[in-house]
């Protein structure tokens, strides 16, 4: 156990350093924050220009704030988890560093624990930056970060599996796009009722709705039960997929 912790710690230090030295990954980390800035500047102006005032303006601003925060959550999880993990593992396979590690007595589970942990931390950090850019109420931050982390769990687990399944970075691109799109579905729910109906059952649909309830001060009501169930179901499903496929995939090309 000590040896495992030691190896995971060493790998996590390396993964964290590599995250900031890899220009592609840096762009991935900055992308959600950039989009948030763009949303706030462009859509924010549109709302202000709509001629609303008084209670109407306050309500519109509240809805816009929820949309911004929800989008920040979905983009942090979707972009960071899928791209960092799937591309990161695929690159290790393509450049044979994963094989070299495994020949140094490092297990695939240790690689997964390190990469999953670092990615989860990166998702939460990017989520916090998105929250700041969105101008969220600081009292909501702990809930926002907790929901971001909770929503990231199934996406991280599935991305780990897809990363291990990727032979190279080309395949990683093919695998990461569906994960990213699926993660972003809730953000489009406001634009279309049909999408909204589907969105609540997507991996981040539950936490997106929970965030909306938290913003309205209704997180601890019965309204939270359904989205919480969806969130837990996806976390369990992600864990099941990981458990079922990881051993089969945990070998180099």
């Amino acid at each position: 156990m000590d040896a495992t912790m030691r190896r995971v710690g060493a790998l996590a230090t390396k993964d964290l350093a590599d995250l900031f030295k890899n220009p592609t990954m840096l762009v991935v980390l900055l992308m959600p924050i950039g989009f948030m800035l763009l949303f706030r500047l462009v859509i924010g102006d549109t709302a202000a220009d709509a001629g609303l005032s008084g209670a109407g303006l306050a309500a519109a601003e509240g809805e816009f704030q929820k949309f911004l925060l929800g989008s920040g959550l979905c983009m942090s999880v979707g972009m960071v988890a899928s791209m960092v993990l799937i591309y990161g593992i695929a690159e290790e396979k393509e450049k044979h560093t994963l094989r070299t590690l495994m020949l140094a007595n490092v297990g695939a589970g240790e690689v997964a624990a390190s990469k999953g942990g670092v990615t989860l931390a990166a998702v939460v950090a990017v989520g916090a930056a998105c929250f700041a850019v969105a101008g969220g109420d600081p009292a909501l931050l702990p809930v926002y970060l907790a929901l971001t982390a909770l929503g990231a769990v199934p996406v991280v687990l599935v991305s780990l599996v897809l990363g291990l399944a990727s032979r190279d970075q080309m395949t990683a691109g093919f695998y990461s796009v569906p994960v990213l799109l699926l993660a972003l579905v809730p953000t489009f729910g406001t634009a279309n009722d049909a999408v909204d109906a589907i969105a609540e059952f997507t991996p981040l649909g539950g936490v997106y709705d929970l965030l909306g309830l938290a913003a309205d001060g209704r997180l601890l009501t019965s309204d939270s039960l359904a989205p919480m169930a969806v969130t837990i179901a996806w976390a369990v499903a992600g864990a099941a997929v990981f458990a079922a496929l990881y051993r089969r995939l945990a070998r180099d090309n």
Partner: peptide, 14 residues
């Protein structure tokens, strides 16, 4: 055991 395989590789950005 220490192993140097035909494809052993180190991290390029480190």
């Amino acid at each position: 055991i220490g192993i140097l395989s035909d494809t052993s590789a180190l991290y390029e950005r480190l």
